[in-house]
Each structure stands twice: as C-alpha cells, then as structure tokens.
C-alpha cells in the first residue's frame, strides 16, 4: 500500500482530485452549481483559455516559458476581424479565409518569438514578455483603440448553436485538444519537446537540433493562441486590443495547476485540460456562491505558488532566480 501512494502517484492524480473536490464543494455550497446550464457556462469560459493554455503547455514542457500570449491573442483577434469584414463579413462568403489567415499570423508571431529567444540567446520569459508588449502595441496600432464587431450569425453560432447543451465552441476546443494530444504523443516534434525539457544537454548530445525544436514549439504555440483568439472573438463578438488581456496569468496558472512542471519534461495537454477546468470552476464557483469576481486574481496567485511548490522536487533544485 505504501508504494501505491508514492509522491509521484500523488502528484499525477492530485489535479484531478482537486477538481473533483472543488466541484463537490461548490455543489454543497450552492446546488445550482451542479447543472447543465452552469457547466455550459464553465465550458464557454474555458474554451478560449484552454486553447491558449495548450499552446503554452508545449513551451513549458520544453522547460521554457511564453508570456507573449496577451499580445498574440489580441493581434490575431484584430487581424481576423479586419480580414473577416473586408472579405465579406460572413462565413458563407470568402471571409472564411480570415480563419486560416489568423492561424498563420499566430504562427508567424510565435516564430518571431522563438527566433528572438534562440538566435539572440535571450531567456524566453523576457523575450516573450517583450514580444507580448510589442503585440499589444501592434494591436492598438491596428485598431486605434476601437472595437471591431463581428456580427455574422454563422460565425457567432460558435456560441449560439448548442449541441447537448454545450455551444459549438466547446466542441471546437475539444477537437483542438485532440489535435494537440496527437502532436504531443504521436509525432516526433511532440516527443522532442519532452526530450528538450527532460535534459537539454542530453537531447543535444543525442543529435537533436534543440534550437529548431524550440523555434517550432513557439510557432506551434502561436497557432494555438490564434485558435484561442478566434474562440474569444466568437464568444463576445468583439475584437479589440483588450481581447488578450488576462490570458497570461490565467493560462500559466492553469498549466501549472494541472501538474505540468515549470522545470519541463513532465505533464501534457490532458493536465492542462484539468488545470483550465480547475481555474474556471473556481472562478465560476466563487461567483455562484456569491463572492465578488475580483477575488480571482488573488486566488489564482496563491494557487500558482502552491502548485509550483508542490510540483518541485526540492532535492534536485539548488537555487532559483
């Protein structure tokens, strides 16, 4: 029995247990929490966050970090909205081209991110933070501070059309989760992320082009940020500079709370799903039981510290910066 409950096993299942305990807790506090309507609400708020969090999961598995998501999401959302409107304004016309365009833009920003990080040899948290600022600034430049409305009914059916009580955007998010899972577990690139995260020097010594893996990781993350941006626009029907705000804190908290270690090599997209759900259940539950929404940032802050502390094997770390 004692070796069933080792530290590793506990860490592996802790996020799921936390999620279940949270659901039980909020249900006990307020029975209305446990309803299809409310779960759909949690699903809607989780879908864009899940996409962004999956993107950064790949980066964190490599042991790097990406803080550029707020800027990238804003730029993708704004570019998408402009292109969508310019090309006809409804999905039934050529405006569908705006979707691949947004994904391309996301990938390109991620690529630049990776290039800046790898070629200039700047630690990724700072390279991506700076790129994030550039992105937000660029989105502001494009919009001039305006909000762009995307009112196409077909595109908004992401939110309005429901199957089994959940809007289509939840299924889109699920589809991309499966794609991410495929990339993570069935492709060379996915395995290389773990190789780099598990030990960069070893990966390098065994002939892996670590720099290329890193750059491709950032580009891939950018594509997922773009998907997140599309879902975020689909949710509120507006693209603006502020579309990306708050994604950074929420997505990194989700990834870490889900059990993907900041040091890299451990975790994956399913962990991130659990993490995103934990964060959104907490956010939703606090509102349902009557706590003000602004407690969120503080709770997330405590949560992220606790998660990093729990996932850190103190014996293997000598010091941190």
């Amino acid at each position: 029995m004692s070796n069933v409950l080792t530290r590793d096993v506990l860490i592996k299942w802790a996020p799921l247990i936390v999620l279940l305990v949270l659901v039980l807790f909020f249900t006990a506090m307020e029975p209305r929490f446990f309803s299809l309507r409310n779960f759909a609400r949690i699903g809607i708020s989780s879908a864009p966050a899940l996409m962004v969090a999956i993107g950064v999961t790949f980066i964190i598995i490599m042991g790097s970090i990406d803080l550029s998501m707020e800027g990238t999401v804003s730029v993708c959302a704004v570019v998408f909205a402009f292109a969508f409107i310019a090309l006809g304004g409804t999905l039934a016309s050529w405006a569908w081209l705006a979707i691949p365009l947004a994904l391309l833009v996301g990938g390109a920003i991620g690529l630049v991110n990776g290039l800046v990080h790898v070629l200039l040899k700047i630690p990724s948290f700072m390279a991506s933070l700076a790129m994030g600022f550039v992105g937000t600034g660029f989105a502001l430049l494009l919009t001039g501070g305006d909000r762009i409305r995307v009112e196409d009914d077909l595109f908004r059916s992401l939110l309005t059309e429901r199957w089994f009580g959940f809007p289509i955007m939840c299924y889109v998010a699920l589809l991309f989760l499966l794609i991410a899972w495929f990339i993570q577990s069935r492709t060379t690139l996915g395995r290389n992320f773990y190789a780099v995260g598990g030990g960069e020097e070893l990966a390098h010594a065994s002939g892996l082009n670590v720099n290329r893996v890193r750059i491709m990781g950032f580009a891939l993350a950018g594509v997922f940020y773009a998907v997140g941006a599309l879902l975020a626009v689909g949710r509120i029907g507006i693209a603006e500079t502020a579309t990306g705000s708050n994604f950074m804190f929420v997505s990194i908290t989700s990834v870490v709370v889900g059990g993907t270690a900041l040091w890299g090599g451990i975790g994956g997209v399913w962990n991130t799903l659990i993490g995103v759900l934990i964060v959104n259940v907490i956010n939703n539950g606090m509102v349902v039981i009557g706590l003000p929404g602004y407690v969120q940032d503080g709770v997330l802050g405590i949560l992220v510290i606790a998660a990093v502390v729990l996932s850190t094997d103190r014996k293997s770390v000598t010091f941190v910066k």
């Binding site: 803080l67 969120q296 940032d297 802050g301 405590i302 990093v308 502390v309 103190r314 910066k321």
Partner: peptide
C-alpha cells in the same frame, strides 16, 4: 523555489485583488 518571474506575477495578482 518558485522562479521570481512567476512568484512576482502571483504576488502581483494578489496585490491587484
């Protein structure tokens, strides 16, 4: 042992709340 960019981000969240 939480890297400072994460710990300060988290403390920033607490301050914001």
């Amino acid at each position: 042992f939480v890297p400072s960019f994460i710990s300060t981000l988290a403390v920033g969240g607490i301050a914001f709340s």
